[in-house]
Write a protein that binds this DNA or RNA. Sequence first.
DNA 1: CGTCTATTTGAATGTACTCAAAAGCGGTGG
DNA 2: CCACCGCTTTTGAGTACATTCAAATAGACG
Lengths: 194, 194
Amino acid sequence: MSYQLLLDNISKCISLPKDEEDYFVSLLKIKKVKRKQFLLQEEEVQKQAIFVTEGCLRGYAIDKNGFEHILQFAPPGWWIADMNSLLNQEPGILYIDAIFNSEVLLLSKTDQDELFIRIPGFERFFRILSERSFASYQYRMVDSLSLSALERYHNFCKLYPSLIECLPQKQVASYIGVTPEFLSAILNKKISAK
Amino acid sequence: MSYQLLLDNISKCISLPKDEEDYFVSLLKIKKVKRKQFLLQEEEVQKQAIFVTEGCLRGYAIDKNGFEHILQFAPPGWWIADMNSLLNQEPGILYIDAIFNSEVLLLSKTDQDELFIRIPGFERFFRILSERSFASYQYRMVDSLSLSALERYHNFCKLYPSLIECLPQKQVASYIGVTPEFLSAILNKKISAK
DNA sequence: CGTCTATTTGAATGTACTCAAAAGCGGTGG
DNA sequence: CCACCGCTTTTGAGTACATTCAAATAGACG
């Protein structure tokens, strides 16, 4: 059932009595999201943290020339949000939409704040979650400073092995920070070089 | 005194009785760090979280061609660490050293874990700290995907206004991800274009 | 004053983008 | 089943952005 994936993740970090688990689940809203449907658009305030149970979402920004830059994919088991907007409840810069028909769990900022007070164990869970996200962005930033486009592509394949086969290449290009034409070129050059 | 800056930051997030504060302070080690002295090198395990009280540190990676890529500067009031290494207690990829003679507070991973158990309020403090770091890396990653070198330079000036005047330009170049020659070129072109 | 490092300048090169057009690949409706 | 549509991928030519390398200039400091 929809909550299981999230509850399993939580139980790896903290142990939760049944009543607390029930309370937590009562705060979650299940939402079905159709392909291309938005969960957030630029200038909106991110009111909920989003946990993906089925399908896949993406978070991206659009630059002043109208080009998309994908920051993150969120397959099942991943959280996604414009974190600055969620934290400070101010307008964000990200768009979040569904790549495939998806199902997500929503936890509103106000319920989350309440949750921290009622069940301090969730402070720990979200601390650990944030630390890991922080750590992975730190390394990703290092990669973006020090690796070539091809190396970033290989990293991507390692990070999202399940996605690489079902995503259009242009979305991968957007994630690693090159144009679709250029990614196509370096991948084909590589093959013929064998 | 050395602890005040950190205690002030903490008190903005959580309120701490005197005895808990004393316990926390007892876990901290003050360390003086000379310019160019290392606090961490590649392949080492980050055993402590580092909080800067005086001077300035930097965290950077060295790529396979021997070039430095600065990930972060840490002036007073900032924490710095190879977060993945600290979290998982495994070898990291960052170097951390002092740009100027500095003073830092060290909180070891084991003491920190103990602290979370003894004083749950610190779960909250470090959750908030991690969330903010996460949020700022998220936006920085968007910037690196969507902004030009000159725009990233302007962002840097906003982020580290106190540093921009005392850092050698080549270190700023390293942070924004271009060569010192190129940064010099775009800054001078800009001026003559007036 | 000399030494060390940072900055600037310029030429040649490489990396990545733009634009345009062609080719491929599902899906859908007739 | 085929023809067509929309979207992705490929290809190529021309251009812009950014690096490399080398050398000259400028600043900081003992």
